[in-house]
C-alpha cells in the first residue's frame, strides 16, 4: 500500500522557490531517506508531506486521501494521531521530566495521566533510557534527549515517522544509537519513515534514497523518480504568505 504520495509539489517562501515540482511515493513500512545538499528543499518537503506546510501547487496524499486541502485543524489532528515528528534538537519541554515529555502526546489525545505514564515508561525502556524517566532534559546528554524525543514521537504508535536531521546535533556514536533504535522500532511496528539527512552514512539506514537538488528530485542521482509534473519554473502561488511558516516555532506548535 502507498503510504504517502507527492504529486508535483511546489512550494516557495516569498520569491524563493524551495520545491519546484516534487513527485514521490513512499510505501507502507518503507524507510526512505531524503538527501541532498543544504538548502535543496529537504525540510520543506518533509513539512509538506507531514501537513505542517501547505504546498502552493500539487498534491499530498496519505493512504489515498488528499491531505493538503484539509483545514489546519484537521491536519493538526492528523499530525497528533497518525504522524510522529523528530527534529534535530530542542523538542523536549525543558520544564517537564522525560516521562512527562513522552506522555504529552497521549495526554493531548485524551489518555489519562496514569496510563500515559505507564506507556511513557515502557517507551523509555524500549529506548534504553528508563532510568531517566524523572530527569529533566537539561540534565541529559544530547543523545539521551534525542532518545526521549524519539520515544515521544513513537508513543502514539504513528503510521508515519518524519525525522529531519535527527542526529545532526549528536556525535557519531550517540547518533548511531538513536538511528539504530529508530530503525529497529520502526520495523517492529511497520512504521513508515521519512528520514531527512545530508549525511551519506545516515541515509545508509534507509531502504531507499531520494536525492533532491534545487527543489527537484535528482533523477540522475540514484535513478529514483524523475519529476513528472509541475517541473521547474512552474508558477508558485501564495507568494509572501508563508514566509516563516517552517520556523522551528510553528513546527513545534504542531507537536504540542
Amino acid at each position: 500500500m502507498t503510504e504517502l504520495q507527492a504529486r508535483g509539489v511546489v512550494k516557495a517562501y516569498g520569491p524563493t522557490p524551495a520545491l519546484r515540482g516534487i513527485t514521490l511515493d513512499v510505501a507502507e513500512g518503507e524507510i526512505v531517506a531524503v538527501t541532498g545538499p543544504s538548502g535543496c528543499g529537504k525540510s520543506t518537503l518533509l513539512y509538506c508531506l507531514a501537513g505542517i506546510l501547505r504546498p502552493d501547487a500539487g498534491q499530498v496524499t496519505w493512504r489515498g486521501e488528499r491531505i493538503d486541502t484539509w483545514s489546519e485543524a484537521a491536519r493538526s489532528r492528523l499530525r497528533r494521531t497518525e504522524f510522529g515528528v523528530l527534529f534535530q534538537f530542542g523538542q523536549l519541554v525543558p520544564e517537564l521530566t522525560a516521562a512527562e515529555n513522552v506522555a504529552l502526546p497521549l495526554l493531548l489525545a485524551g489518555t489519562g495521566r496514569r496510563a500515559g505514564r505507564t506507556a511513557a515508561l515502557a517507551w523509555l525502556d524500549r529506548l534504553g533510557v528508563a532510568d531517566l524517566a524523572d530527569t529533566r532534559p537539561g540534565e541529559m546528554s544530547g543523545g539521551q534527549q534525542q532518545r526521549c524525543a524519539l520515544a515521544r514521537a513513537l508513543v502514539t504508535e504513528p503510521r508515519v515517522l518524519f525525522a529531519d536531521e535527527p542526529t545532526g546535533a549528536l556525535d557519531t556514536l550517540a547518533g548511531e544509537q538513536v538511528l539504530g533504535h529508530l530503525v529497529r522500532l520502526s520495523r517492529e511496528q511497520r512504521t513508515t519513515v521519512v528520514l531527512v539527512t545530508h549525511e551519506p552514512r545516515v541515509a545508509g539506514y534507509a531502504d531507499r534514497e531520494v536525492m533532491l537538488r534545487d527543489g527537484v528530485v535528482d533523477g540522475t542521482g540514484l535513478g529514483i523518480e524523475v519529476p513528472s509534473s509541475g517541473g521547474p519554473g512552474r508558477s508558485t502561488g501564495g507568494l509572501g504568505l508563508l514566509v516563516g511558516d517552517a520556523g522551528a516555532g510553528s513546527v513545534q506548535d504542531g507537536l504540542r
Binding site: 529497529r184 552514512r201 534514497e209
Partner: peptide
C-alpha cells in the same frame, strides 16, 4: 561518478544492515 555513487550507497546500506542486525 553517478554509477560509483550508487554502488557505494548500496554497499553502505548493506553494511548498515549488518551492523544493526540484533
Amino acid at each position: 561518478l553517478v554509477a560509483q555513487r550508487r554502488a557505494h550507497t548500496d554497499r553502505l546500506r548493506e553494511l548498515t544492515a549488518v551492523k544493526t542486525d540484533p
